[in-house]
Amino acid sequence: MTLDDIKGILGALALTGRGDMEIDIGRAYCADLMSDVLAFSVTNSLLITGLTNAQVVRTAEVADIKAIVFVQNKRPDIQTIAMAEAKNIPLFVTELSMFDTCGRLYERGLRSQMGPTV
């Protein structure tokens, strides 16, 4: 599933200008607890979250997460968006709830993969 597919499925808006929309996203992880993301997410995945602070982008960077979707139309501030641009981590925002965001992506075949440091 590409980032472009994900954007379409979620009716999402891109908050960052750069980034390759054809990147293939094989896995996803959803959490508002960044330590859970650091413990359980897998590399090259999509992060779905309701948190919008700068630590979310930092977490994505250190955990090798490819892109972030913010749910419930929550938007990070401009400094956080700028940091994501600099780190080449595309950000998206959707009006969908976290449940519906995960549900729609799961329905279309996206899966999580639990494990400490896979």
Binding site: L33, D36, L51
Partner: peptide, 16 residues
């Protein structure tokens, strides 16, 4: 509220 302080910090360090 910032997504930290869930009691996973030191265990996460040990894990890695």
């Amino acid at each position: 509220e910032m997504g930290f302080g869930s009691g996973m910090g030191l265990p996460n360090i040990k894990r890695n």
